[in-house]
Simulated assay, not measured.
Amino acid sequence: MEKHLTRIALFAALIAALGLLPKLTLTSGIPITAQSMGIMLAGTILGARNGALSVLLFLFLVALGLPLLAGGRGGLGVFFGPTLGYLIGFAIGAYVTGLVAERFTNRMSFVAALSGAVVGGIVVVTICGIIGMAVMMDVSLVTATGFALPFIPGDLIKAGITAAITAAFWKARPSLANAA
């Protein structure tokens, strides 16, 4: 139990640290950040349940006001802006990423991690983000989809990096596979 809590907290910290990398904000008001890669890594390495819990811990800290989102944003206000859907999608995406990766016979493989990262970390997070933008910005789903499309190439790169890191991690530490 303590090992799980430590890993959950460690990945919440990793997601926060990835927000320190410089952000690029698009005209939609949605920043491009490395934090989505932390979401993918949480799912592929910790698994569905613990990956989602690490994201929920991160979001709880953001809600408390810690400036952990890209650009030093934090507080309840971020849950009332155009990024709402992405924030909700982070937790769901980490869960789905882990769930997909766990369905493979060898969940430690590059293919398993890449599949999970694409389905959970890109498809799920992007769908949630589009819905959130449409609602919070009072625009159509088509318009919100247009705002989300510029993120896809970078997300694909992050999914590939996630898969490579995950495969290398499991190769270096196979004993942790049973603990996840």
Rank of each mutant, 00 (worst) to 15 (best):
L176S: 11
T6S: 15
A117R: 04
V62F: 07
I131M: 15
L61Y: 04
I122W: 01
A70M: 04
S36G: 15
P174I: 12
G146P: 13
V118R: 01
T27F: 11
T166C: 03
K158F: 06
L156M: 05
Y86F: 15
V124L: 03
P31G: 02
I165H: 06
I122M: 08
L46K: 03
T44Y: 02
L53A: 15
G72R: 00
F11P: 06
L21K: 00
I92P: 03
I39G: 08
L26V: 09
M37E: 14
A63W: 13
V125E: 08
D138K: 14
I39V: 15
P153V: 03
Y95N: 11
V139G: 13
R7V: 06
C128M: 07
D155K: 11
A42F: 01
L69Q: 05
T166D: 06
V78K: 02
G85R: 00
A91M: 01
F169G: 06
N50K: 15
L68K: 06
F110Y: 11
S36E: 14
A13D: 00
K23I: 15
V125C: 14
L87I: 07
G81N: 15
S115K: 12
G160A: 09
P67S: 12
F169Y: 06
Q35G: 07
P82T: 15
G129I: 06
A16F: 02
G71A: 10
T126A: 14
T166E: 05
S54G: 04
D155T: 12
A177P: 08
H4I: 07
